[in-house]
């Protein structure tokens, strides 16, 4: 049989058919727009760095870095810019938060990953997610109206101030709990089944398997969760702004009021502040410290997570 030789495309008969790449200008335009949108994130980072950098450098022309980092008093009205009291308060609230979030979060994670049935896990996880979805200002309200009065009843009205870092830290711990527990659970679930089975085969109980085999095996993931939680606590603002107190004070007593870095920025910028004043610039210097700290913590946490993923996959 003779093959049928008819043209499939009208272009073919006209001799203009080409299977080469056609130029499609609108596809290129679309791609350019997409590239620009992806670049917005780079611009944001650049914006943050430039803004914090320029305002802080104006600040550091008048206050030496040494004075800023080692000064023990923060009183802009008399020209004292030592960040230690603010850093100290931030550390205290963050550590209190982690003292709540890490043990509880790890407990929740072990329960969900090792003990709970599929159905229980499916019901509990969304409830925990609701905890992290509640606006932080609501937590601040809760710290001030419920936790602080409860603490004052517990320890005595005189020994504990109305604004204190303990109450803020405790409530912040609950805020961070879902983050820590979900990261810990991911780490525990990433431990291969063979390790569990080996432990059971040796006669270990469920607890012994969980605590002595699984948790150590997932240690790097748990450490990453701790560091990320710490970074979240350092940057958390509204709870400390409402419950930890106003006025920078250098104290190690968690029952006393103290102002954190974030709390100070919110209080000062919420009032009437004139641009081009030292008050204004000092806020950017604090923000720079905050940015560098949280960025470093986040990067460490992410690199740990990456490492343990490589080990088990």
């Amino acid at each position: 049989m003779k093959p049928v030789q008819t043209a499939m495309y009208p272009e073919e008969t006209r001799g203009v058919l080409s299977f080469g790449k056609r130029s499609r200008p609108h596809e290129n335009i679309i791609q350019a727009v997409l590239v620009f949108c992806a670049a917005v994130s780079i611009l944001t980072t650049l914006g943050i760095i430039v803004v914090l950098g320029t305002e802080s450098s104006a600040f550091f022309r008048e206050v030496s870095l040494r004075e800023f980092l080692t000064g023990r008093s923060w009183q802009p009205s008399i020209g004292e810019f030592g960040i230690l009291p603010l850093v100290n308060a931030t550390l205290m609230t963050s550590l209190a938060a982690m003292l709540v979030a890490l043990p509880l979060g790890l407990g929740v994670a072990v329960y969900l990953a090792e003990y709970a049935s599929e159905r229980v896990r499916e019901t509990l996880k969304p409830i925990l997610e609701v905890l992290s979805g509640v606006p932080t200002v609501v937590y601040g309200y809760f710290a001030l109206t419920v936790v602080t009065p409860a603490l004052r009843n517990l320890f005595g009205q005189d020994s504990i101030e109305v604004y204190n870092t303990l109450s803020a830290g405790l409530v912040m711990g609950v805020l961070i709990l879902p983050l820590v527990s979900s990261m810990c659970e991911d780490a525990l679930s990433a431990v291969p089944r063979s390790l569990r089975e080996a432990a059971y085969a040796m006669g270990a109980t469920k607890l012994e398997t969980s605590v002595m085999i699984i948790v150590p095996a997932a240690f790097s993931g748990i450490a990453a969760a701790f560091i990320l939680g710490l970074s979240r606590a350092v940057g958390e603002t509204m709870i400390v702004a409402l419950a930890a107190g106003a006025g920078p004070k250098l104290t190690l007593n968690p029952l006393k009021a103290a102002e954190t870095m974030t709390g100070h920025i919110v209080r000062i910028s919420g009032g009437d502040i004139s641009y081009d004043s030292m008050d204004y610039r000092s806020l950017f210097a604090i923000a720079l410290v905050l940015f560098v700290t949280t960025l470093a913590l986040n990067m460490v946490s992410r690199s740990i997570v990456k490492k343990y993923r490589e080990v088990y996959e």
Partner: peptide
């Protein structure tokens, strides 16, 4: 960079918004 931006405290975005 996007992952890192997701971890920047919200108050820093406030400072960015104020300045820009």
């Amino acid at each position: 960079n996007i992952y890192n931006l997701a971890g920047v405290p919200s108050i820093i975005y406030g400072m960015l918004g104020l300045a820009i």
